[in-house]
């Protein structure tokens, strides 16, 4: 409804907390694009990303009573979506990792080889030469825990300390993961991988 579009976020949050579903609908309308992109950068699959984005909104709604409405909604819901996507990646990683690893002496770290299969999406093939698409593919080629720090630092603009809290990691691990992830991205973009 158009009348909701004019309301400030804080008012919508208060109304949503009182069970006004349409007020929450307006918040969904405002944030769905951004949130979908958070999940899509992490998962790289359109359908999974839509599902998890919707799930994030539902979980956030169910937890809304505990949310301090004086805080901005965006970072909070993005954190929920990020956690859901990372859990999903972990499960998917476990499910797709073969039980018996083929014996290949001197092979690279298997997780760094875990490239998602993107060859079946025609739009990707079509845009494969483009710089942005190269970057997307490079991001998806990163192991999930590297992808997570890149997402939180570069797209959600968290500090090292905030990332450590969000991922429940020691600060030193956050830094080494982040710097290593950047090196991997650079190599891939510069055509060394």
């Amino acid at each position: 409804m158009d009348s909701w579009a004019g309301l400030p976020e804080q008012r919508l949050l208060t109304l949503a907390q009182r069970g006004v579903a349409d007020a929450y609908g307006e918040l969904v309308r405002r944030y769905q694009g951004e949130l979908y992109n958070v999940v899509y950068r992490l998962l790289g699959d359109q359908h999974e990303s839509l599902d998890l984005t919707q799930e994030s909104f539902v979980q956030a709604y169910n937890a809304l009573a505990s949310f301090d409405t004086s805080r901005p909604f965006g970072p909070w819901i993005k954190r929920i979506a990020t956690n859901l996507a990372l859990n999903w990646l972990q499960r998917r990683h476990v499910l797709t990792t073969p039980l018996t690893r083929p014996a290949q002496p001197g092979a690279e770290e298997p997780e760094e080889l875990a490239l998602p299969d993107v060859s079946t999406e025609p739009e990707r093939v079509y845009l494969a030469g483009e710089r942005h698409e190269l970057l997307r593919q490079a991001l998806l080629a990163l192991p999930p825990h590297y992808r997570a720090v890149i997402e939180l630092r570069h797209f959600q603009e968290l500090s090292y300390e905030e990332i450590a809290v969000a991922l429940k990691l020691p600060l030193s691990d956050v830094k080494s993961n982040l710097f290593r992830a950047r090196q991997l991205l650079r190599k891939r973009l510069e055509g060394e991988v």
């Binding site: 969904v28 769905q32 510069e190």
Partner: peptide, 30 residues
């Protein structure tokens, strides 16, 4: 070189949302 990566990440355009999900969320919460 590192700065170039920062810039590339910063300027990565958002992917278009495939479909509006407001109705889907509302159907599940209300």
């Amino acid at each position: 070189a590192l700065q170039e990566l920062f810039l590339a990440l910063e300027t990565l355009p958002p992917a278009p949302l495939p479909r509006d999900m407001t109705a889907g969320v509302l159907a599940r919460i209300a």
